[in-house]
Amino acid sequence: MSLTRLCALADLGPDKITRVEVEGRSPVALALADGGAVAFDDTCPHADESLSQGWVEDGRIVCAVHFAEFEIGSGKAHNAPIGCGRLRFYPTEIRDGAVHADLAD
């Protein structure tokens, strides 16, 4: 597996979602949850808004735009508008104080 460095762990904060631009693909979002960093697509599967405007609540990522909720890990959508797909999560690893993720298809 190939890891991409996304940002310093110290850049993440509780209760916020951080958006990271990645060369050659759509942006990735990072949040602190379950005692570590989780990585997922920043683009909401509902209507392409940025999930970095949202927040983490009870084990779910909440989209601030139409309030879809995505289970951390599985990405399964709850309370979502019609036509909203699953959110894709990526495996992460901390190396030298930085968050890395496997963004392979």
Partner: peptide, 20 residues
């Protein structure tokens, strides 16, 4: 038309597929 406002009143989104 689905404009969406946060509890702080700011416009957080519309429908990214059109306005953006």
């Amino acid at each position: 038309h689905g404009w969406s406002f946060g509890i702080d009143g700011r416009l957080v989104g519309t429908d990214g597929k059109v306005y953006d």
